[in-house]
Computed example of a mutant assay.
Amino acid sequence: MPVLDANQWNSFIARFPTAHLLQTAEWGEFKAAFGWLPLRVANDHSGAQILFRRLPLGLTVAYIPKGPLGSDWADLLIEVDAHCRRRRAVFLKVEPDCWEGCTGQPTLDEIFRGWEQSNPIQPRRTVEINLTGDEEDWLNRMKQKTRYNIRLAQRKEVVVEFSSDVELFHRMMLVTGQRDGFGVHSLAYYQRAFDLFSPKGMCALLLATYQQKPLAGLMVFAFGQRAWYFYGASTNEERNRMPTYLLQWEAMRWAASRGCTVYDLWGIPDEDETVLEDQFSAREDGLWGVYRFKRGFGGQIRRSVGAWDRVYQPLLYKIYQQITARRRLDG
């Protein structure tokens, strides 16, 4: 089974218009700038982009984010296994791009028999917005308050425009991270993402302003029939003008113009929908404030099937788990 370069992989992945952005060659090249080595293998009916992270003593960890692609993964995973062993992987984490309850997906429990079921890296639960129909259809699927806030931002003279000012966006990210208590990537991280994806029409940076004063921004990504809201930021000024609502609306319009039929809002608390609806108005911790905002856009709550780890070096794997658990406890 051949190892594919970026161009060969792009030719292969073009056969899968619903493939996840994290399996694109561009995502592999993006992560390569931050310590990961992408390796891509495929046969006639399936393929995977594997990311390897170097550890001390010549060891690695391996990760297939939102893959593999295609069907009948048995032969593919044998090849993946061989590459992991050659690169002295402590373990391989596979995080399939499958939703709970979806039909037609591989029988994952059989495929991963003998593997460790584990926590995924990416958010397990999300909200997907349906972009089929016209814009009035989108609005009709939203909560009344969200429709109102979009129109309020327009009445209050908020302007949303495309931008290439990643440095400004990063400054707003720092403000948001400090206010809401989450980590922020470096300027180089966002700049690299924009520089790789934007020239190919796979990313847009949108900024919301009032009287030329920046209020909020977001980076939206697209591949095939799907789009994703990965990064968003806002200042502490003029928040009564609801700029973030208009930003999401314009991101949806951009995604639809790219041919996308689904817009993924990317990450909400991993709780059952009944719990989410019972507690969203009272909870402020974690992603609860994010859910309160995202629920209004009328999307469907989805939960991924999770992740499985293929363990090659059990003792080192156990140590790795202990270290990562301690980091989560430390915040």
Rank of each mutant, 00 (worst) to 15 (best):
L4T: 04
C203M: 14
F221I: 02
K93F: 05
S281R: 14
L152Y: 05
R283C: 09
T209I: 05
F293D: 02
R327A: 15
Q23M: 05
F30Y: 01
P56N: 12
A188E: 14
Q8C: 09
L247W: 00
R54C: 07
N140G: 09
R85V: 14
D75T: 15
V275M: 11
P314M: 12
K31L: 04
M242E: 06
Q144H: 13
M252C: 05
F52N: 06
R239G: 13
V80Y: 01
W9T: 06
V262C: 12
W73T: 10
L57N: 10
F293M: 10
Y148T: 00
R192W: 07
F30E: 01
E26F: 08
L215V: 11
P38A: 13
E79G: 04
R125G: 02
P214A: 06
Y210R: 06
I129M: 07
P96D: 00
M142Y: 10
D180N: 12
G58T: 08
Q178Y: 13
H170M: 07
L57S: 10
G224R: 02
A227R: 01
I111Y: 08
A307N: 04
D137F: 07
R241K: 15
A193R: 00
S186V: 06
E237H: 10
R113G: 08
L4S: 05
D285H: 11
L37A: 12
T324C: 11
N10G: 11
L69Q: 01
R15A: 15
G28V: 04
G306D: 01
Q313P: 01
L315W: 15
Q122H: 11
G331L: 08
Y63G: 03
D309R: 10
T235E: 01
R155F: 06
G114A: 13
W99S: 00
E284R: 15
A325C: 06
L37P: 02
C203I: 03
A325D: 11
T126H: 05
D72T: 13
W228C: 04
Q279T: 13
L4F: 12
Y189V: 01
G331Q: 09
L196A: 03
L57M: 13
K66C: 08
E238T: 03
W36S: 10
K294E: 04
L39N: 07
L22V: 08
N149R: 07
E238Q: 12
R326H: 09
Y189P: 01
A233L: 03
I13R: 00
E271G: 08
I64D: 00
D272M: 07
Q8H: 09
V184G: 03
N7A: 14
L77M: 15
D285V: 07
M172T: 03
W228M: 04
W36L: 13
Q313R: 14
G224T: 08
I319A: 14
V184N: 02
Q300P: 07
Q105G: 05
